[in-house]
């Protein structure tokens, strides 16, 4: 259990201003806007809800497992198997590397050093997120909350820029999804206690399909 005194560390890690590079990624929202699948706040909410219960749950499970101290090599392989799109694997490793740099500065820790040395090109971001949470004294459920929140925070911010959506409405979408984030984080943390094989593998076909199309666009606002 995370001690009460770690609550502020969780805020630091989850803050959008934490220099981990997440702001450059839309979580598939840029491709969905272009395809006409996100036109307003209601579409954004359905998109984010789908992300939460699929890739959000999967990422939260990996993050919770890493925060618990499960073998990061096994977790990274599990993340690869859950990420069929090479564009998304590349993005996840790049984000993992950026997060690692920030985390090592924020919470110096020999386990983080070892993980960074083992994956010079970056481990999958949720694995690094869990390891960073662990270094910050946070627990598996904290790491899962962070992962769940990032799953929807990125697209909501991106859609404000892409569609000119009213930022108050985008924030209201996130607030409405807060109970779902809690539920997803709790499920992920529970699963993590069952070991690597018990981790969720929920997937979203359209995110995989559009990720490769998006990566091939000559001009785009977001990296993924």
């Amino acid at each position: 259990m995370a001690r009460l005194t770690t609550r502020s560390a969780l805020l630091v890690l989850a803050d959008g201003r934490f220099p981990a590079g997440g702001h450059a990624h839309s979580g598939g929202a840029e491709a969905a806007v272009k395809a006409g699948r996100i036109r307003d706040a209601a579409d954004l909410e359905a998109f984010c809800l789908g992300r939460l219960h699929t890739v959000g749950l999967t990422a939260a499970g990996l993050a919770a497992a890493a925060a618990l101290g499960l073998d990061p090599y096994e977790l990274d392989a599990a993340a690869d198997a859950r990420t069929p799109s090479p564009a998304l694997r590349t993005a996840a490793r790049r984000l993992g590397r950026q997060l690692m740099r920030a985390a090592r500065a924020a919470w110096p820790d020999p386990e983080l050093d070892a993980l960074a040395a083992a994956f010079p090109g970056g481990a999958h971001q949720p694995v690094v997120l869990g390891a960073a949470a662990r270094a910050a004294g946070l627990g598996p459920e904290d790491a899962a909350h962070c992962a769940a929140y990032e799953t929807v925070g990125g697209p909501a911010t991106a859609v404000v820029r892409l569609l000119g959506l009213d930022p108050y409405r985008a924030t209201a979408v996130l607030a409405r999804l807060a109970p779902v984030m809690d539920e997803v984080a709790a499920r992920a943390a529970t699963a993590a206690h069952g070991g690597v094989d018990a981790l969720p593998a929920a997937s979203a076909p359209l995110l995989d399909i559009t990720a490769e199309q998006h990566a091939a666009w000559p001009v785009r606002l977001f990296a993924s």
């Binding site: 969905a32 699948r37 996100i38 359905a46 998109f47 809800l49 789908g50 219960h53 076909p205 359209l206």
Partner: peptide, 21 residues
């Protein structure tokens, strides 16, 4: 490869939204 797909009335929400189907 490890993937799970869930849809229909008993699935968690959002399965028919812009991210999934």
């Amino acid at each position: 490869l490890d993937q799970e797909l869930a849809y229909g009335p008993g699935a968690p929400g959002g399965w028919d939204g812009g991210a999934v189907l």
